[in-house]
Every structure is written in structure tokens, then in C-alpha cells.
């Protein structure tokens, strides 16, 4: 067994950014471990996607009408069959919705170890040493794993720019797994982003509230500040799941990706899933009474002031006098 197999995600038309990060990681690992970088792409039509996979030495193409739209069961069948056929030393999957379905599932089906939440990977002999963010980013676990093994990688960990070229780009068309004829699940329909009343992805300033706001009644404090600042109100996942703000305002992994000039994080701890949605923001200011909160690692400025005192004070200064 040799080489690094990358599971490529796409919407059928474009390769997802995470896949270029994985290809960049794969090129680094393949240099130490030896073997090829292989990109597995499974879709109804792989035609529009292969041109983007220049970082791979071989592009494993699996096409079938059953692969139209993302269906976890179908994708796991393809990934498992590719692992069995190609016997890679390392399998890389993004820590995305697909990664949550497939990394541990494919590892279990093939009897391989799986390491999740990886932000760094390096080869040591035939082992892989990985750093993983655990406990909401409060602690980092370093693991040594014998290969072959599966790793799921957090977005933003490797440079996407290094994942576009450097491979031979040979295409290998593989027959779809027989199991695709007996699937026990189906895609009924998909909905894109947008359609809501607000679009926080275009906002220049975002005031984003987290669990620290304490309850729906306190959202008003952040709302007043956002109004005074000319900012849109954003939220972390727990705030949306608690029903304090609508889904269209959620920033992070299963929400929106924002790139404002100013991101004011209020009572947000900064779990990796949240950071994924705002790591390209300009100036980041964080307010959190827990001085150890991971948000302070990515913020430019921070304070442990109580938000209930601080927000009204900022609002008062920004409001026109009188």
C-alpha cells in the first residue's frame, strides 16, 4: 500500500475549496511517504471537475446517474471500493458534512483507524502524526497512527493555493460499485443558500452573538449595537439552535461564511466549526468573560469585560449625541 487518496467534494460543477486543501496536504505527505496522490471524484458527470484536479497524479473517476446529488450511502460505497482497490497508505476526507458522513463510515467498513478534527499532518516513517482540535478548540491532541489510515481535516488547515498543480493528472475511469443499484436512500431535492430576508455574507460589519448572550431577551443589546454600527447581526450555532436568532444569520460550518471588514464576536467561544465561517474576516474583536476562550487565538483585539456592561457602553459612544 502506498500513496495518498483524496476524497474530492463537489456540487457536480465545481470542486469544493476543502478538496484543494486536502490535495495540498496530500502532496506534502506523499513526498515523505512515497506513492502517488490520487483524487477520487464520484459524480453523475465528472467532466467539469477533472480539469481542476491538476494536483493529483491520478484522478479516479466514478460516474453513474446514481451519483447525481450528494447521497452519503452512495458516496461511502464508492470511497470504500476505492480504498479496497487502490490500497492507499493515507485517505484524506474534509471535516465537512460529507466528512462527518464518510470518514468514520469508510474507515469502519475497511477496518482502518480514523483520526478526526485534524489541523496538521506529517509523516514519521510509515506512521502519520496528526494534530486534532478537541474540546471546542480548547485542547490539541497529537496522535501517532500506523498506516493505512483515514484522516478528516478541518478547513483552513492547509493552503488551498498549493492544491491546484504539481501532479501528473492521469485519468482512470473506474466502474461504479454494484451496490449503487440497491441503494436504501435517495436525494429528494436540494435548496441553495439565500432566499431569506437577510444576507450576512455581503455585510461589511458583523456583530455576532454566541451562547454568552444568555437568552433571547438579551439579543436586543447586540441588536442595538449592530444598528449603531451599521452592522448585520450574526450568530453562532447554539444561538440559532436555541431559536434566539434565525438560521439565515448563522456563521460557521453549517451556516454562512462571512468576510466582513469588521467581525465583533460577542460571547462566542470560538469552536473550530464557528471559526471556519469567519476566518477571512478583517478586524476581529472578541468579547468573552472566559480569557481562555479559543476565539482570542484568532481575534486581533479581545476583552474579558462583561458583555452586559460593555455592549451598552459601546452603543452609547456610537450613537449621535442628543
Amino acid at each position: 500500500m502506498a500513496g495518498v487518496l483524496v476524497y474530492v467534494e463537489s456540487d457536480g460543477e465545481r470542486v469544493a475549496p476543502i478538496s484543494f486543501e486536502l490535495l495540498a496536504a496530500a502532496r506534502e505527505l506523499a513526498q515523505s511517504l512515497g506513492g502517488d496522490v490520487e483524487a477520487l471524484v464520484a459524480a453523475a458527470d465528472t467532466g467539469p471537475l477533472v480539469g481542476e484536479l491538476g494536483a493529483a497524479d491520478t484522478i479516479l473517476e466514478v460516474t453513474s446517474p446514481a451519483l447525481a446529488g450528494y447521497l452519503p450511502e452512495a458516496q461511502q460505497l464508492v470511497l470504500v471500493e476505492a480504498i479496497r482497490a487502490r490500497k492507499p497508505a493515507v485517505v484524506l476526507v474534509g471535516y465537512t458534512s460529507a466528512g462527518l458522513d464518510l470518514a468514520a463510515g469508510a474507515a469502519t467498513a475497511t477496518g482502518l483507524p480514523v483520526v478526526a478534527y485534524c489541523t496538521g499532518l506529517r509523516a514519521e516513517g510509515s506512521d502519520v502524526v496528526a494534530d486534532s482540535q478537541l474540546y471546542g478548540g480548547k485542547l490539541v491532541a497529537t496522535t501517532t497512527t500506523s498506516t493505512p489510515a483515514v484522516f478528516s481535516v478541518v478547513a483552513g488547515s492547509f493552503a488551498e493555493a498549493n492544491g491546484h498543480a504539481g501532479g501528473r493528472g492521469e485519468r482512470i475511469v473506474t466502474a461504479p460499485p454494484a451496490g449503487l443499484a440497491q441503494l436504501r436512500s435517495r436525494v429528494l431535492g436540494t435548496t441553495g443558500a439565500g432566499g431569506g430576508a437577510v444576507d450576512i455574507t455581503k455585510a461589511e460589519r458583523v456583530v455576532s452573538v454566541g451562547r454568552g448572550i444568555g437568552g433571547a431577551d438579551n439579543i436586543e443589546l447586540a441588536e442595538e449595537l449592530a444598528t449603531a454600527m451599521g452592522a448585520e447581526l450574526g450568530a453562532s450555532r447554539p444561538v440559532v439552535d436555541s431559536g434566539w436568532l434565525p438560521k439565515e444569520r448563522q456563521v460557521g460550518k453549517s451556516g454562512m461564511t462571512v468576510k466582513p471588514k469588521l467581525y465583533l464576536a460577542v460571547g462566542i467561544s470560538g469552536a473550530p466549526e464557528h471559526l471556519e465561517g469567519m476566518h477571512d474576516a478583517g478586524l476581529v474583536i472578541a468579547i468573552n468573560t472566559d480569557g481562555d476562550a479559543p476565539i482570542f487565538k484568532v481575534a486581533d483585539y479581545g476583552t474579558t469585560c462583561d458583555l452586559f456592561d460593555l455592549l451598552p457602553a459601546i452603543t452609547a459612544l456610537l450613537k449621535p449625541a442628543g
Binding site: 482502518l112 483507524p113 480514523v114 483520526v115 502524526v129 482540535q133 478537541l134 478548540g137 480548547k138 485542547l139 490539541v140 491532541a141 497529537t142 496522535t143 501517532t144 497512527t145 500506523s146 489510515a149 476581529v284 472578541a286 480569557g291 481562555d292 479559543p294 482570542f296 487565538k297 484568532v298 481575534a299 486581533d300 483585539y301 479581545g302 476583552t303 474579558t304 469585560c305
Partner: peptide, 19 residues
């Protein structure tokens, strides 16, 4: 098939300037 060799807080040094 995988062993934790270290569990620690993320590296210090970078991060917010505290007000």
C-alpha cells in the same frame, strides 16, 4: 490503531491584544 502522545492547550504566542 492510533495513540494519543500529547494533549495540551494550543500553542501560545499569537492571539488577541487584550484590552
Amino acid at each position: 490503531g492510533s495513540t494519543v502522545t500529547r494533549l495540551a492547550a494550543p500553542p501560545q504566542g499569537q492571539g488577541a491584544q487584550m484590552l
